[in-house]
């Protein structure tokens, strides 16, 4: 791994190359380092899977919203304030007793940033990209998702124009829970399809 050296190690060649580009573009007036600071902070702290969890919890509690979400993912997600780069064209696919959906991007790393944030490394890795489409049930087992053979697995390969969000099944025993409480059960992986929503505690 490239990131196992200590904090006192000299900057890597890659870090130097990145610094050189940023410095040159800044000197030419083509880049404002403060803009980079703000972007890093935004994606480290404000954009992440809690956004997608709000969408799922709303769909679980409001059937009209759910209908809109499955009909026009981009528009329904924007109703909750989540839109923008890498979420311009969203398709939401619903898990049911009969169908389990799994999202991948075999070509690279397309992922719905406004609802899930930036993808984890495994999503961008060669093994996941390669295997998700040829052995999805094996991948799901590795992630701890055991599906009965009669459940159809649908794999969605994202691309630069279209990104997918899985609407996981609402767990049993959650009747009467508030939307906020329900959102707490929605994991990132359940919205990629490599996991299920968590069962309520107790």
């Amino acid at each position: 791994m490239a990131h196992d050296h200590g904090h006192n190690a000299p900057p890597s060649d890659t870090a130097m190359r990145a610094k050189a580009l940023e410095t040159l573009l800044t000197e030419k007036g083509l880049l404002d380092p403060a803009a980079i600071d703000a972007l890093v902070e935004t994606y480290e702290t404000r954009v992440g899977p809690r956004n997608g969890a709000r969408v799922v919890a709303r769909a679980w509690t409001d059937s009209d919203y759910k209908a809109r979400l499955l009909e026009d993912g981009t528009g329904a997600i924007a109703e909750l304030g989540f839109s923008g780069v890498q979420g311009e064209d969203m398709v939401v696919v619903e898990n049911t007793d009969d169908v389990h959906n799994l999202v991948t991007c075999t070509l690279c790393s397309c992922y719905p940033w406004p609802t899930l944030g930036l993808p984890p490394i495994w999503f961008k890795s060669a093994p996941y990209r390669a295997r998700s489409v040829i052995d999805p049930r094996g991948v799901l087992r590795e992630f701890g998702v055991e599906l009965s053979e009669d459940v159809e697995v649908r794999v969605w390969d994202s691309n630069a124009e279209l990104r997918y969000l899985v609407l996981p099944q609402r767990p049993a025993g959650t009747e009467g829970m508030s939307e906020d409480e329900l959102a707490g059960l929605v994991t990132r992986d359940s919205m990629i399809g490599t996991g299920l929503a968590q069962a309520p505690a107790g």
Partner: peptide, 14 residues
Amino acid sequence: HEEWEGRVFGMFFT
């Protein structure tokens, strides 16, 4: 994982 990764990410937008 590294500071430079965040800088490279941000440069996509700029």
